[in-house]
């Protein structure tokens, strides 16, 4: 479970996130929607304890990011889009094992996790090759495996399909659904309404650091009388500015 409680983040004069609150239930895939610069990544970074909220707090599985950052980190796995944050001179296996060890996994458990993730993500053919020469899709698979190696309860996916081709993005969505079936709590951020629509029933919509809507996609459709989510998004944004 993720609970964002009236969170704000300022960088000197810039208010990146302002009084944002929403709640993601355990086992839910929740969408965090907004255009570039809306404050999604800053919110995700506060959840990952890389940034500290200026005001408010976030609870992950009952632990406060302010008070218990190490407990929070033990329970989350975060995947960034774009730069997937892998060591290009290490093999896929070494990348995954490195993070597994940092999460305190015993050797036998680590090997078992790498084996099962490699099968799940179809990485057996390239798991012992260096990451530097991988395609974008292959790198993304390794990054997902690294994110999941310690079997976290809460998974934060920050624009995870950025740069992926249609096939890789589809495989990725299948994997998200599979993780949901396993009972994982997933926060999926994107600027693509269509992508969110394929995975989530509830969303938080951010614009210029503020929360413009938090609730079910059905509610949004009913409220605006259209099925076109891009139109809905624009209407919410323009309404908040008007």
């Amino acid at each position: 479970m993720i609970e964002v409680k009236d969170v704000s983040k300022r960088f000197k004069e810039i208010a990146a996130v302002q009084h944002v609150s929403f709640r993601v239930e355990a086992g839910e895939v929740y969408g965090l929607l907004g255009e570039n610069g809306a404050g999604k990544t800053t919110t995700m970074r506060m959840m990952a304890t890389v940034l500290t909220p200026t005001e408010g707090d976030i609870e992950i599985s009952g632990f406060s990011v302010r008070q218990q950052p190490l407990e929070v980190r033990r329970r989350i796995g975060i995947l960034f889009g774009g730069d997937v944050g892998l060591y290009s001179r290490l093999t896929a296996r070494e990348n995954i094992a490195y993070f597994g060890r940092l999460y305190g996994l015993e050797q036998a458990r680590l090997e078992e996790r790498i084996h099962s993730l490699s099968r799940m993500l179809e990485m057996d053919d390239f798991i012992d090759r260096r990451v530097g020469a991988f395609s974008r899709g292959m790198k993304q698979k390794v990054a997902i495996a690294r994110t999941l190696v310690h079997d976290p309860d809460v998974i934060l996916l920050d624009e995870p399909t950025t740069g992926l081709d249609v096939t890789a993005a589809t495989i990725f969505r299948r994997m998200v659904r599979k993780l949901q079936e396993e009972g994982k709590t997933i926060l999926f951020s994107s600027h693509n309404m269509g992508e969110i629509n394929k995975l989530c029933k509830r969303v938080a919509l951010m614009h210029k650091g503020k929360l413009r809507f938090a609730g079910g996609l059905d509610t949004l459709r009913e409220q605006f009388g259209t099925e076109d989510l891009d139109d809905i998004f624009m209407a919410v944004v323009e309404g908040s500015e008007g």
Binding site: V50, F80, G85, F99, L102
Partner: peptide, 8 residues
């Protein structure tokens, strides 16, 4: 950034 999200 990935490293800093690990519990260390």
């Amino acid at each position: 950034e990935s490293l800093l999200t690990a519990p260390i």
